[in-house]
Write a protein that binds this DNA or RNA. Structure first.
Lengths: 255, 255
DNA sequence: TGTTGACATTCACGTTGCGTCAAGGTGTAC
DNA sequence: GTACACCTTGACGCAACGTGAATGTCAACA
């Protein structure tokens, strides 16, 4: 059986342009060219196209597919393993994105209903919130969807008072932190007070408090540059200081 | 505070080229241009860049971001919801890809160790196997990783005899199916025999048999065009016929 | 004051995997 | 013979920049 571009295209479910392109880059050349210049494909080409499309479905680049199908000695195993790793990483990123978008939506909804109710106005969703988003994202990734979902629900149901409370707490954390940072002692009274305020603040976002999670968050503050930047914006080193204070506060310093 | 391209770039973690590009497409214009033609950005631009990067991290296209940040009345909610749906779909596709790659790897490994052991040679991993791959992928997506993982393990541990048996069964399924299809009656004896052979064949891939899963697979044969194409390659309608036969066989026809 | 080196600028092409015209030749059916 | 579906080869367009090339500017140092 012989096929022209369109017939092969219909058979395999690809456009004629795609076949021309594959010819152009040397990925799939027709069996022969007719006297009038038409591309004629045979059974071998059909089989090969099947292979190509199979790898393409796996998301392998055409360049790599070329290696895979042209040189039989090519290390397809290693290529596939690498490709798998890439896909997994991609998915992890995608998961973060999704969690992020969801949290954003939840927050937006929260602010919207609030303003609808005229309970208060001008609730600012700015840089600090962006950071909360990312923070929520990380949490979701590390501690599971459920916890964050509950956090979202909490945000939605917050009252004006609670919002004010949260902002006040956040400000207090900052204040205490700044004072404590000046002492340089994360085990000191001021630092421990900051850590406690931080715990109180956290409770507004989570339904349950655990020392482990609190310590985890604190570690993240240093690992994640977005957070570090946020907490260090006044003075460099504050993020690490808060982490140390919280680790001491939670008694998880050794873990 | 005023920033040149590089300073802003360092601050925000983007390249100078990116800033130039954002200027070019009108996404982020500098606050002013210095007498010597330098782009000068101010605090507003920093804030705006933060927003832009936030949405960019969400995977929103620059074009959409432009709408988001330029018109305050823009329906960001709807945009985000749509974006979320896109992301979810993307992740579902990615999951399929990953499962597919993994199954391919498992099969390759299976064939490799087999041939290493010289147990047999020339085990063909061809079109039919490709179809099995995809089939495995769907299964993984619908019935969870565990089941397919066990299936993979099974493949790995198959002996030459078992492979032969699987191929024989597959052939028998086809044969019985062809004969049954001629009768036109999916409830008939021949069709039910084909369904039973299909069940036996399935058992080689799964560690547990369930009517539900069997029926699910059968339905998939028709929903998924790749499968339909495979089963219908001799005669159109065979896939649907097998589905009907299996649904009757499993007694899941009504579900 | 001149020069060096790090910055800035504007083109402009390259990337991936095709979609989408445009302008023209070919095959076949009526 | 002529209509119409099919084929061909260019060649531009897409997203979001990377990467030169050629050239101008600023601050600092000998």
């Amino acid at each position: 059986m012989e096929y022209t571009v369109q017939k092969l295209g219909l058979l395999a479910g690809v456009s004629t342009r795609t076949l021309r392109y594959y010819d152009e880059i040397g990925l799939l050349k027709p069996a022969r060219i007719s006297s009038s210049g038409y591309r004629i494909y045979g059974q071998q080409e059909v089989d090969r196209l099947q292979q190509i499309l199979f790898y393409r479905e796996l998301g392998v680049s055409l360049e790599e597919i070329k290696d895979l199908v042209t040189s039989p000695a090519f290390d397809a195993d290693r290529a596939l393993h690498e490709h798998r790793a890439q896909l997994l990483e991609k998915r992890a990123q995608l998961d973060l994105l999704i969690a992020n978008v969801e949290l954003t939506l939840a927050q937006r909804e929260g602010t919207k209903t609030m303003s609808d109710k005229q309970k208060f106005e001008g609730f600012k969703q700015k840089l600090i919130d962006d950071n909360e988003n990312k923070y929520g994202t990380e949490v979701r990734a590390k501690y599971g969807d459920e916890k964050v979902s509950k956090s979202n629900a909490k945000v939605k149901n917050m009252t004006e008072q609670q919002y004010a409370e949260v902002e006040k707490l956040a400000a207090q954390v900052h204040e205490a932190l700044a004072a404590a940072f000046a002492t340089g002692d994360p085990a000191g009274e001021l630092a421990q007070k900051a850590a406690d305020l931080h715990r109180q603040w956290l409770i507004y976002w989570w339904d349950q408090y655990s020392k482990e999670a609190h310590a985890g968050i604190a570690r993240m503050y240093v690992d994640d540059e977005r957070f570090t930047a946020y907490y260090d914006k006044d003075q460099p080193g504050v993020a690490a200081f808060l982490r140390d204070a919280v680790l001491i506060y939670t008694g998880m310093g050794d873990a």
